[in-house]
Write a protein that binds this DNA or RNA. Structure first.
Length: 396
RNA sequence: GCUGAGUUGGCGGAGCGGUCAAUCGCACCUGACUGUAGAUCAGGCGACAUUUUGUCUGCGGGAGUUCGAAUCUCUCACUCAGCA
């Protein structure tokens, strides 16, 4: 029974579970499905809040872990809360810090899943997790800190985002069934504590989202979904995907989760943002999703483009660093209406990347965020006009 | 013209008798990246051969010394600096 936010499904696709809806927060309306760029440190890297507004972004994602360490939630709170602090007038959502427990706990946060697991075994995690709390060291200065579910919610209350996430334990991939089950049960217990604390101290009308875990295991996904579904929370989030497993396993995990969640509630999928994945998750009824990809790729010189471009493996993006773009005076993406594409050429942005000019990151990130925002807008329109499946097959 | 310094792979620049196909940057090519310790990371980068590996050609040109030279000697060419 939603209390702190209003979510209405306006239209459902006839052939998939895709749907168009409207989420209303105290900061305005959000058309769903929606893509929410990640602004970890109260900034979507290289872009201003005005850029994002201009692009049409309606929801921004911030991070409890980072903002707690720097500048501290008090600074953000005294600045009027996360949105106001960063000059953003629309809605915000904050991550709980739970994901960092997973991602900061090991030497390698990239590489193959096997390599990451090996590193984790070679060097015991600097993060110590117990059922009660998580003790970790700051990546900034090595100082010790402790998070509990209550602490995470307390910080998120101070940050003041419209939507906040329960403190969860995201197991690495691969994990054994036993490990995944343990982290799932821990996540469930933490959720109950988050709810208890939130209901007692929620003075700003923030909405709490519970998170489903369970790794890639069918029975655990179902169990977790059913557990989270019956909680007294405003909306739901699905976690533990896109952590190194194959796309196929990611899709299966989603398929093993969605049927057990209340149909009418708002559902956010954590950490997804590649073009093919977006079509797949929207088709399963996901209402919003966040991803660092547009801005990370933007800094690496990789820009999204409509097929046919790139190679078979990466047909939705090109690498502007490549020499072949040095004299290519066409826009990054044909027919893209974003400011980067209507004003600049590949050759120019290629040059900026080669020269390590700051504008490069900005132009590419702007385009990438626009590209996904616009893609999701097209998807919404297609769902409304009953052409979602056609749009999907046209892209994939 | 004299004196001195120098000429190394696309560029810069190490090496100064064997362990050198030659450190390292840059450039170039590949790959990775999905709730951001990421303007990042990993690999390749003389030619040929199927990889481990092997063969060949190589450190301005030529000639020597030596078991062995990018490294020493002579010579030629060119570049730079100072003096005329």
């Amino acid at each position: 029974m939603p209390k702190n936010l209003q979510f209405t499904v306006l239209h459902r696709d006839s052939s998939t579970k895709a749907r168009v809806g409207k989420l209303v927060t105290s900061h305005g309306e959000i058309d769903t499905p929606t893509f929410t760029p990640v602004g970890t440190q109260a900034t979507v890297k290289s872009l201003s809040a005005q850029d994002l507004d201009e692009i049409g972004v309606q929801l921004l994602f911030g991070n409890t872990y980072h903002l707690h360490l720097r500048p501290g939630e008090e600074v953000v709170q005294n600045g009027g809360g996360l949105a106001s602090f960063m000059g953003w007038k629309k809605s915000t959502i904050t991550d709980s810090g739970g994901f960092q427990v997973f991602s900061l706990g090991r030497k390698s946060t990239w590489g193959t899943a096997k390599e990451i697991k090996k590193d984790a075994e070679d060097e015991p995690s600097l993060v110590k997790i117990s059922d009660e709390k998580v003790r970790f060291r700051s990546h900034l200065d090595g100082s010790f800190h402790t998070f509990t579910p209550e602490k995470s919610i307390e910080i998120q209350h101070a940050l003041g985002a419209d939507l906040i996430l329960a403190f969860d334990h995201c197991p690495p991939y691969p994990s054994t069934h036993e490990e995944a089950k343990r982290s799932m049960i821990r996540t469930h217990k933490w959720l109950e504590r988050c709810i208890a604390y939130h209901n007692k101290h929620n003075t700003k009308g923030q909405a709490l989202l519970g998170i489903v875990q369970g790794s890639v295991f069918e029975d655990l996904r179902k169990e977790s979904a059913e557990f989270v579904a019956k909680q007294d929370i405003d909306a739901l989030a699905i976690g533990g995907v896109a952590v190194g497993e194959s796309k196929d396993l990611m899709r299966k995990a989603l398929l093993n989760t969605m049927p057990y969640l209340p149909e009418d509630k708002y559902k956010h999928l954590l950490g997804i943002g590649e073009v093919d994945d977006i079509f797949d998750i929207v088709a399963e009824g996901i209402d919003s999703f966040d991803c660092v990809i547009p801005t990370r790729f933007g800094r690496y010189g990789i820009v999204f483009a409509s097929p046919p471009v790139g190679n078979i493996k990466n047909k939705f993006r090109i690498d502007l660093n490549r020499q072949i773009y040095a004299k290519d005076y066409s826009p990054m993406t044909d027919n893209c209406a974003c400011k980067s594409c209507t004003n600049y050429t590949k050759a120019y942005v290629h040059h900026l990347f080669k020269a390590n000019e700051l504008l490069a990151y900005r132009l590419a990130s702007y385009h990438n965020v626009y590209f996904l925002t616009n893609l999701v807008k097209q998807i919404r329109e297609a769902i409304l006009t009953g052409t979602f499946s056609q749009l999907r097959s046209a892209w994939l």
